Simulated assay, not measured.
Amino acid sequence: MDKAWTRWQDWAEVVLGVVVLLAPLVVDTTNGAMWAMIVLGALIAADGLASLAAPAMVYGEWFQMVLGVLLFISPFVIGYTDLTGAAWTSWVGGVLTVAAGAIALPAANSAHAGRSGLAGQH
């Protein structure tokens, strides 16, 4: 079973979330782009921290991948594809977040199976 605070994929998710969260300080944004990046970045970082603390939380990795998809599509939905820095931060951050969540999913499944297997024996 994975130990808490050791999985590199979850640390990557935290770093990605913080980078997206802070990106509006250095890239041009609209009000909508800024809030999308702040909210999604904060959620990605928070979910990464939750996954670090509880490595058997499989749904956290699925939630992380959903957040990555939302980050990737946000420039299209909110309409900031013309803001190169903000758009590329969202696209790259979204793809990397989905990838980190997908790579962490087998480890989370393994940790969950190990944890539930011990609890189910009498």
Rank of each mutant, 00 (worst) to 15 (best):
R115I: 05
V20E: 06
H122G: 09
A53Y: 12
V27Q: 06
D47G: 02
S110P: 00
W91E: 00
F76G: 04
D47H: 02
F63I: 12
L70G: 15
S51H: 05
A50F: 10
I73M: 12
I73T: 09
N109R: 14
R115M: 10
G17L: 07
N31K: 08
A56S: 15
V19D: 04
R7V: 12
A107F: 14
A107G: 11
I73C: 06
L40R: 03
W88F: 12
V18K: 04
A86K: 03
M37Y: 08
A111V: 00
A42Q: 03
T89E: 02
D10E: 15
S116C: 01
V14K: 10
D28N: 08
L83G: 04
A54T: 11
T6N: 11
M1F: 14
V27Y: 13
V98Q: 04
W91D: 01
K3A: 15
T6V: 11
G94Q: 05
A111Q: 00
A100Q: 06
A56C: 00
V15M: 10
V15T: 12
S116K: 07
T84D: 13
A54M: 11
G17A: 06
V98E: 03
A107Y: 14
G120Q: 13
T81E: 14
D2S: 13
I78A: 05
A45W: 06
A46S: 14
A45T: 06
I38C: 04
Q64H: 07
V58D: 02
N109I: 11
G79L: 08
A42V: 10
A87N: 10
L40V: 00
E61Q: 15
W88C: 00
S110G: 11
V39G: 02
G93M: 04
G48R: 04
P75F: 06
M65A: 10
L71Y: 09
L40I: 11
Q9E: 15
G79K: 06
W88H: 01
L118V: 05
G85F: 10
A45N: 04
M34E: 14
L40N: 02
L25K: 10
Y80N: 09
I103C: 00
P75G: 02
R7I: 08
A56L: 00
W62S: 10
S51R: 14
P24I: 00
S116E: 13
V95T: 02
V27I: 05
L118I: 00
A4V: 07
D2N: 14
Q64E: 12
V66S: 11
T29V: 13
L118W: 03
L25E: 12
G79V: 07
T30H: 03
Q121K: 11
L105F: 15
E61W: 05
M34G: 12
Y80L: 05
S116G: 03
M37I: 03
V95H: 03
V58N: 05
G32R: 09
L25H: 07
L22H: 02
L67S: 07
V14G: 09
L21M: 14
G60N: 13
V95I: 14
P106R: 01
V27A: 04
V15P: 05
V19E: 09
P24M: 04
E13A: 13
V95A: 13
V14W: 13
I38M: 11
M37S: 01
H122W: 04
D10Q: 12
A107Q: 10
E61K: 15
V20W: 06
W88I: 00
A50R: 12
G85C: 07
L71S: 07
T6L: 12
I38R: 15
A119E: 14
K3N: 14
G68I: 04
A36H: 01
F72R: 07
